[in-house]
């Protein structure tokens, strides 16, 4: 069996040809090793990084951008979105800080990708802002 895929690991978008019979999988057309890994994973269980926002308790920073630290199965994305929609961030987080340890049973953490302390400074009208 043969399948055509476009690699989504970087903007180059290599056109991959995946040939497989039983356990044997060969990938061609990839310019780097990430392409082969992507193609094999895509056959078994397509996985994606999920990026979205989480509600916060702070008026100056109502939504915190977040992403999964690693990929989760594509078929679990909508379930994960449901879980994320029920979260409320009550601490001022910075990029890399943990929002959730295990998103929707994937064992993949959800992390903050923006700095909520920047909003705080603006509310105070701090000196750094000129």
């Amino acid at each position: 069996m043969e399948k055509m895929l476009v690699c989504i690991q970087c903007p180059q978008g290599c056109k991959l040809v995946v040939s497989y019979s039983g356990e044997q999988v060969t990938v061609t057309g990839n310019k780097c090793p990430r392409g082969a890994g992507y193609a094999k994973q895509e056959l078994i269980n397509p996985c994606r990084t999920l990026t979205t926002t989480v509600k916060t308790a702070f008026v100056d920073f109502p939504l915190l951008p977040v992403r999964t630290l690693g990929e989760i199965p594509l078929k679990k994305v909508f379930g994960a979105m449901g879980e994320i929609s029920r979260l409320l961030v009550k601490k001022r987080l910075r990029p890399g800080d943990l929002v959730l340890e295990n998103l929707s049973g994937t064992h993949v953490p959800l992390i903050a990708t923006d700095d909520m302390t920047m909003g705080e400074q603006n509310v105070k009208g701090s000196e750094i802002c000129g």
């Binding site: 990084t49 990026t51 951008p65 992403r67 990029p95 990708t113 923006d114 700095d115």
Partner: peptide
């Protein structure tokens, strides 16, 4: 692969 806010940060 960073998100936009992480890159700017």
């Amino acid at each position: 692969k960073l998100s936009g806010p992480e890159y700017a940060w």
